[in-house]
Amino acid sequence: MFPDEEEKLTDIMLGDAVLYLLQEGSAINVSALIATLQKMAEREESAIYQQACLNALKNVRNSAKLCVCQPDEESNVLPLFSHFPTANATKH
C-alpha cells in the first residue's frame, strides 16, 4: 500500500471511531477515541484495517501529548488537535 493510501485509511478509521461515538451519544474526547480505536483494532480481521486503527490510535495519543491548552473560563472545551494551524494562520 502506498503511504498516501495508508494515511487516507487511517483518517477513515479515525472518522469511523468518531461516527461511532456520535451514534452512541457518547462524549468525543481523547480517552473515548482511544478506547474506541483499541476495540476496533482488536475486532478487525483485516491486517491492513487493523494497522490503520493502530495508526489512528497513535495519532490521537501523539496529539494528546502535544495539547497543552487549557479551557477558557467560560467553557470546558479543549481542542483535540491543537498543533494544527488555526483559521487565522496563513494557508499555502
Rank of each mutant, 00 (worst) to 15 (best):
A56D: 03
D4Y: 01
V18L: 05
S82R: 06
H92F: 03
A47Y: 00
P3Y: 03
A89W: 00
S26R: 11
L33C: 09
I48N: 02
Y49I: 01
K8C: 08
A35D: 13
L66Q: 14
K65T: 15
A32M: 13
L22H: 10
C67E: 09
A89C: 08
P85G: 07
K39R: 10
L14Y: 06
L54M: 07
C53N: 08
E45I: 03
R61I: 15
S26V: 04
V68M: 13
N59S: 14
R43L: 03
L14E: 05
G15A: 10
Q38A: 05
I48P: 00
V68H: 14
L14K: 06
N76Y: 11
I12G: 00
E6N: 04
L19W: 02
N62R: 13
I12P: 00
Y49A: 04
L80K: 09
H92R: 04
A32H: 14
R43S: 11
A47C: 00
C69S: 14
A56H: 08
K8T: 09
A41K: 07
P71I: 11
S82D: 05
N76K: 12
M40V: 03
E44D: 07
M40E: 05
Q38W: 01
V68E: 15
L22Q: 13
A89K: 00
A87K: 06
P71C: 15
A27Q: 11
Q38G: 01
A89E: 01
A89Q: 00
C67L: 10
S46N: 12
T10V: 04
P3R: 06
M13A: 09
L57T: 10
L33Q: 11
F2M: 01
L80E: 08
A52D: 02
A41M: 05
G15S: 09
D4R: 07
N59M: 13
L22K: 14
V30S: 13
L14D: 03
S46C: 06
I12N: 02
Q38L: 08
Q70P: 05
E5S: 10
M40K: 11
S63A: 15
S82M: 05
L66W: 06
E7Y: 05
S75H: 15
E74L: 14
Q38Y: 04
D72T: 15
Y20Q: 14
S31F: 11
